[in-house]
């Protein structure tokens, strides 16, 4: 456990020194705040566009607060995912390529600790960024539209946070299986997109797929319930554990690049 904490603290220090701990939350806060503000200002923006015939009356129905927050989640589902993939794409392959994994893994370090400490650091920075970003979205939605019940907001936060962590885990998995960091990010994002599309095309067959998490988070906001979430949550946890186990196996087999 002490060793795990030493590894985790090192990951944490690296996030600080590389400024990731600053810019990732900042980007998430911008993402979260932008959606309600843009939605609020949309009628003015259109009215000021200037190329409307005189006398045109623009009627845009004011969206419900929970819809605004659900749209905010969609922002995190695209740009947010991209940022998480960028942050975690070199987690394992970077250390392998530079040779530092060889320096560390000739010491009596448990391979499992090496991987899970990195994973925990990614999950932590994701959680911090997402809570701040989603909090900003919630705050502006409340200020400009209406307050969304905090229970619903918290429920959707947890569901969507799990989806983001799942993507981070996938990126770490591909980062330990592939040499190139870019390929790892690309594969992880591709897998996420495939999962979401397949789940929406085959809702029955893939009722328990992690690809449902984003939809469940929205449902929690708009309807106050996310029916059928427990099996999905369970399967997601199983997938996360399996992905970590494969990463550990891959690292044990190929601790450094020259050995591949």
């Amino acid at each position: 456990m002490t060793q795990w904490m030493v590894l985790y603290r090192k990951e944490w220090l690296e996030l600080i020194r590389s400024s990731k701990l600053i810019w990732m939350p900042v980007v998430f806060i911008l993402l979260g705040a932008m959606q309600p503000i843009m939605t609020y200002m949309m009628p003015d923006i259109i009215a000021n566009a200037g190329n409307m015939p005189e006398g045109t009356i623009i009627e845009i129905p004011t969206p419900h607060a929970s819809e605004v927050l659900a749209q905010t989640l969609q922002q995190f589902g695209t740009l947010g995912l991209l940022i998480i993939a960028l942050i975690s794409m070199g987690t394992v392959s970077g250390e392998r390529m530079s040779g530092t994994s060889a320096m560390i893994l000739v010491k009596p370090v448990a391979y499992t600790s090496f991987v899970t400490a990195k994973w925990a650091a990614i999950v932590t920075i994701t959680a911090i960024s997402f809570v701040l970003g989603y909090g900003a979205g919630w705050y502006y939605t409340a200020a400009l539209f209406d307050t969304v019940a905090w229970q619903d907001a918290a429920g959707s936060l947890l569901l969507f946070g799990l989806w983001l962590s799942f993507i981070g885990t996938l990126t770490i998995l591909f980062s330990s299986l592939l040499r190139s960091a870019a390929a790892a990010a690309f594969t992880a994002l591709g897998t996420a997109a495939l999962l979401s599309i397949a789940t929406s095309l085959l809702p029955k067959a893939l009722a328990w797929s992690p690809g449902k998490l984003a939809g469940l988070a929205s449902a929690q906001l708009t309807s106050g319930t996310a029916s059928g979430m427990w099996p999905v949550i369970g399967i997601t946890f199983v997938c996360i554990i399996a992905a970590l186990a494969i990463s550990v196996w891959s690292l044990r087999k190929y601790p450094s690049i020259e050995a591949v």
Partner: peptide
């Protein structure tokens, strides 16, 4: 691994430390 110390041909260290 606990009883060996190893210096590789090209030592790789964390530049940010």
């Amino acid at each position: 691994r606990s009883v060996i110390g190893f210096l590789p041909q090209i030592p790789a260290l964390y530049g940010w430390m």
